[in-house]
């Protein structure tokens, strides 16, 4: 069963967001739809004028194409076609750090619990796990490390500026 987690490992209850598949071509009538990038680009009267919607990027898509709109969305999804496809890590940092996005950033698709720490460091704050094992204790995965060397979305100051 799917689990939606926040970046402390707590289950997010009553999540309103629905991911709209790439091949969708009807009109959007529901609020809280996460629209595929291309759909949003192709839809001249974009539904988020009237409805609160979000957008999602596949790992090969470029947030640059909608840079000036990024902050209008309350939720942005980034899709991982396989957990070995690490492009989403870069996209997340890009959206958070370059565009200063402050809304919810969701990782979905094929991600595994052992990636949660790195994902959250890169700026994700919600995670849709497709089939986590029941024994899994999500909190465990977020505080594996108390020491981090690099500057990242969660901590812009690298360790060498914090070392004491």
């Amino acid at each position: 069963m799917q689990k939606l987690l926040d970046n402390t490992g707590q289950i997010i209850e009553n999540d309103p967001w629905v991911i709209v598949p790439k091949d969708f071509d009807g009109p959007v009538t529901k609020a809280h739809s996460l629209l595929p990038l291309q759909y949003w680009l192709d839809t001249p009267s974009n539904p988020d004028q009237e409805l609160p919607t979000g957008i999602w990027f596949d790992s090969n898509e470029e947030p640059e194409t909608v840079a000036e709109h990024i902050n209008r969305w309350a939720c942005i999804g980034i899709h991982f076609p396989t957990f070995m496809d690490g492009r989403g890590f870069t996209l997340a940092r890009f959206i958070r750090e370059r565009y200063g996005y402050a809304g919810q950033l969701r990782a979905f698709g094929h991600i595994i619990p052992d990636q949660l720490f790195f994902l959250s460091r890169c700026g994700f704050d919600s995670f849709l796990l497709e089939s986590p094992s029941d024994e899994m204790d999500p909190e465990l995965y977020f505080d594996n490390f108390s020491v981090i060397y690099q500057s990242c979305a969660d901590q812009p100051q690298p360790l060498f500026r914090r070392r004491a």
């Binding site: 690490g86 890590f89 790195f118 994902l119 981090i148 690099q150 360790l159």
Partner: peptide, 14 residues
Amino acid sequence: RQWSTLHPEFAFLP
């Protein structure tokens, strides 16, 4: 070495 160790963005490179 320290920069690259557990670099969160680059653990799943091509």
